[in-house]
Design a protein around this nucleic acid. Structure first.
Length: 587
RNA sequence: GCCCCGGUAGCUCAGUUGGAUAGAGCAUCAGAUUCCUAAUCUGAGGGUCAGAGGUUCGAAUCCUCUUCGGGGCACCA
C-alpha cells in the first residue's frame, strides 16, 4: 500500500511537469506511515521537499499535487496538513484485507527479495580456539546469527563462517599448556608458566591425552625445565619463559608428537565451541582454518599479488606492505625478519580467498577492539585489485554482566562465571538470545542477569512470548467450546474489524515487512525486538478490551477476530524466529 | 598525539537513514479480574536530546568546535 501511494504521487508529479517545468520529480517519492491516526494512514512530504525548486509555497504545491492525483478506490480521502504534508486515509475495509495476506503468506510474510541474491559471507565469533566461549562471544554469536537470518529473509545468499585462528603463537601456548598438564597427570612435577592457559578445561584435555597416549609423551621434569630462563614469579619475563617452554616441547617431543598435542588441544576446544554454539541455536556453514591458507599456498599467492603491484618493500630484514597507499595510517609487516608470516598476511589472504570463492560482500563481525584492523584488510583487498567496499565490518561493543545491581568481574579469576555456557544455563537460551540483540551493536551492553532470569512482568522476553501463548490458548478454546472457525466466512466479514484496538493491531501487523527490511539494511536486530514489543503491546491491549473479545456467539465477528489473532500469531512467530527465540504455546 | 564508538526521562535504551506535540521498558503514584491466562491492561507525573555554533521551510538526526566516557594505535592474534 505504501508503495502504491508513492506510485500515484509520482504519477501526479509527472502530470504536473507540463504546468511546472521547474518541478523535479524524485526517483522515489517519500511516503511514511503516520504515527498519529489524526494524520490519516500515510503521509508524504514531497510538497515541502520540492516546493523551493518548483517556485511555489509548500501548501500551494500540495494543492496542485492533490488535484492531479488519479482516482483511487483504495483511498478514502486526501488532506493537506501542517506545513505541507499530504495525508492519505485508506478506504474502509482496505487495511483489514492484510489479515489474509499474512495468513496466506505464512512464514514467508515479511520476506522480500531486496538482496537480489547477493552472495554474502558473514564471518562471526571467530574466537581463538584456546578456551571456551565467554559471554562476549555470545553477543557476537547471537548478533551474527540474527543478522544472517535477516539477510536471508531479504533475499541474500548467506554463508556463515567461523575463522579458526589455528596457527600462531597462541596455539603453541595452548599446546605447551596441555603438555605440561599432561606431564602433571602422568606424575611429573613441573611448574606451570605464568603465561599458560590455566583453566580446568586444559586439565581435562590433558587427562584425555594421557588416556590415549599413555606415557608416550612423558619426559622427566628435569629434562623439561633445565636451562629455562626465569618465569615471572622468579623475576623473569613471562613471554620469554613461555617461548622457551614451547621450544623445549618441540625439541623433546619431535615434530610428530608435538603436532599430536597441538591437534588434541585444538580439536577438543573446537568441538566444545561447536557444541556450545549449536546448543545456542547458532550454526556455522563452515569453520575455516587459518593453517589451511598456508598449507594450500593462498598466503603465498596473496603475497605475490601484493608484490606484483609493487605494494611491498623490504626493510630491517622484514617484508612490508605499503598499506598507507590505500588509506591505512601505517605500513604493515607481512613477513617477519625470521621468515614467519604475520597474522595480517593470513587475514589479507583469507579475505582474498573469500572474494575468489565468489562472495560479493564480506561482512565481518568483530569486537570493537579490532577496529584498527579494518583499514588494514581493506587496504590489502584494494592492493590486490578487489573493491575495498566489498568489505563491511560491524563492530561489537563490549558486554558487562550485572548481578544484584553490581557489575560482575569479568576476569577468569574469582569463580564468577564468564562462559557462554554458564550464562545459557543460568538464564536460558531464549532470554540470552533476546537480551543479546536488545541493544544496537555499537552500544555497550549491560546484561542484567536478574532481569533475564526473572519470570515476572518486568522481563521483556516473557512479554512477547506471553502474547503468542495467549493467542494459542484462545484458539484452543474454540474446539473446547464446540465453536467452529470458518475461514471463508472470516474473509467475507473481515471489514467488521473496526474497533480502535483492532485497527491499531492491523496497522502494526502491516509494518512488519518494512521493519524486517530496515533491520536487514541496518544490520540492526534490535529493530525487530522493538517491533515485537510493540506488536505484543497491541495484542495485549486488544485482548484486554471488552469490546474485542474473540470467543463470542456472533459467528461472523468471531471468525474475523480469529483470523486477526491467527495473523498476529504468525507475525510473532516469524519475528521470534528471526531472533532465534522460541514461541511457546502455553506459559 | 591520531583513529573508531557512545552521551536522549531517576535507571536501561529506541528513534524507520532531516518531518507534524521526542518514544518504550523498568522504577514511582492512582486504578482495572462475577467475563478468552493479571507473565496482562488503563491512566498520571517525569526532558536544556552533553555544550556551543552552522546548514534550511524544518535538526536528537547532517557539518565544525568543545567536553565527558569506552576502545584501538606490535616483526602478538
Amino acid at each position: 500500500m505504501k508503495d502504491h501511494i508513492a506510485q500515484i504521487v509520482g504519477d501526479a508529479l509527472h502530470a504536473l511537469k507540463a504546468e511546472l517545468p521547474d518541478l523535479e520529480v524524485p526517483i522515489s517519492v517519500a511516503v511514511e506511515r503516520t504515527r498519529d491516526p489524526k494524520h490519516g494512514d500515510f503521509a508524504s512530504n514531497v510538497a515541502m521537499a520540492l516546493a523551493k525548486k518548483a517556485g511555489l509555497p509548500p501548501r500551494a504545491l500540495a494543492e496542485k499535487i492533490v488535484g492531479a492525483l488519479p482516482d483511487n478506490d483504495a483511498i478514502d480521502s486526501v488532506q493537506i496538513a501542517g506545513p505541507g504534508f499530504i495525508n492519505f486515509t485508506l478506504a474502509r475495509g482496505q487495511a483489514q484485507a492484510l489479515v489474509f495476506q499474512i495468513l496466506d503468506a505464512g512464514e514467508r510474510y515479511g520476506q522480500s527479495n531486496t538482496g537480489q541474491g547477493e552472495k554474502v559471507l558473514v564471518e562471526f565469533v571467530s574466537a581463538n580456539p584456546t578456551g571456551p566461549l565467554h559471554v562476549g562471544h555470545g553477543r557476537h554469536a547471537a548478533y551474527g546469527e540474527c543478522v544472517s537470518a535477516l539477510l536471508k529473509a531479504t533475499g541474500h545468499d548467506v554463508t556463515k563462517e567461523y575463522y579458526v585462528n589455528d596457527a600462531g603463537r597462541q596455539m603453541d601456548i595452548l599446546a605447551a599448556s596441555v603438555w605440561l598438564r599432561y606431564l602433571e597427570h602422568a606424575g611429573e612435577t613441573v611448574p606451570f608458566p605464568a603465561n599458560g592457559y590455566r583453566g580446568d578445561y586444559i586439565k581435562t584435555i590433558a587427562a584425555g591425552l594421557h588416556n590415549s597416549e599413555g606415557d608416550a609423551l612423558r619426559h622427566a621434569a628435569d629434562a623439561v625445565v633445565s636451562g629455562l630462563p626465569a618465569d615471572e614469579a622468579d623475576g623473569g619475563d613471562k613471554d620469554a619463559y613461555i617461548d622457551a617452554v614451547i621450544a623445549r616441547a618441540r625439541d623433546l617431543l619431535g615434530d610428530d608428537a608435538y603436532e599430536r598435542v597441538h591437534r588434541t588441544g585444538l580439536d577438543a576446544i573446537l568441538d566444545d565451541i561447536r557444541d556450545d554454539l549449536a546448543g545456542f541455536g547458532v550454526t556455522m556453514d563452515a569453520y575455516f582454518s587459518e593453517r589451511s591458507l598456508t598449507g594450500d599456498g593462498t598466503v603465498d599467492k596473496a603475497l605475490e599479488r601484493l608484490a606484483d603491484h609493487d605494494n611491498t618493500f623490504e626493510q630491517d630484514g622484514a617484508v612490508w606492505f605499503k598499506a598507507t597507499r590505500y588509506g591505512d595510517d601505517k605500513d604493515r609487516v607481512v613477513v617477519r625478519a625470521n621468515g614467519q608470516r604475520t597474522y595480517i598476511a593470513s587475514d589479507i589472504a583469507y579475505h582474498l580467498d573469500k572474494r575468489l570463492r565468489g562472495f560479493d560482500r564480506l561482512l565481518d563481525i568483530l569486537g570493537s577492539d579490532h577496529h584498527g584492523y579494518v583499514a588494514r584488510v581493506r587496504a590489502g583487498l584494494e592492493a590486490m585489485g578487489q573493491p575495498g567496499d566489498s568489505l563491511e565490518v560491524q563492530l561489537m561493543q563490549f558486554v558487562s554482566l550485572f548481578r544484584n545491581g553490581e557489575k560482575v568481574a569479568m576476569t577468569t579469576r574469582g569463580g564468577q562465571f564468564v562462559t557462554l555456557r554458564e550464562l545459557r544455563d543460568e538464564v536460558g537460551n531464549d532470554a540470552a538470545r533476546f537480551f543479546y540483540v536488545l541493544r544496537s551493536n555499537d552500544q555497550h551492553l549491560d546484561f542484567d542477569l536478574d532481569l533475564a532470569k526473572s519470570k515476572r512482568e518486568e522481563n521483556p522476553v516473557y512479554y512477547v512470548q506471553y502474547a503468542h501463548a495467549r493467542i494459542c490458548q484462545m484458539l484452543e478454546k474454540l474446539p473446547e467450546q464446540q465453536l467452529t472457525h470458518d475461514e471463508s466466512r472470516a474473509r467475507e466479514n473481515i471489514a467488521r474489524l473496526e474497533q480502535d484496538k483492532e485497527l491499531a493491531l492491523i496497522k502494526t501487523l502491516a509494518r512488519y515487512p518494512e521493519q524486517v527490511a530496515i533491520a536487514a539494511r541496518d544490520r540492526a536486530p534490535q529493530t525487530i525486538v522493538h517491533y515485537l514489543r510493540e506488536l505484543s503491546a497491541d495484542l495485549h491491549s486488544f485482548y484486554n478490551d471488552r469490546n474485542c473479545r474473540v470467543i463470542i456467539d456472533d459467528h461472523a465477528l468471531r471468525d474475523a477476530r480469529v483470523a486477526l489473532v491467527r495473523a498476529t500469531r504468525q507475525v510473532l512467530r516469524n519475528g521470534l524466529g528471526l531472533l532465534g527465540v522460541s514461541a511457546p504455546a502455553r506459559m
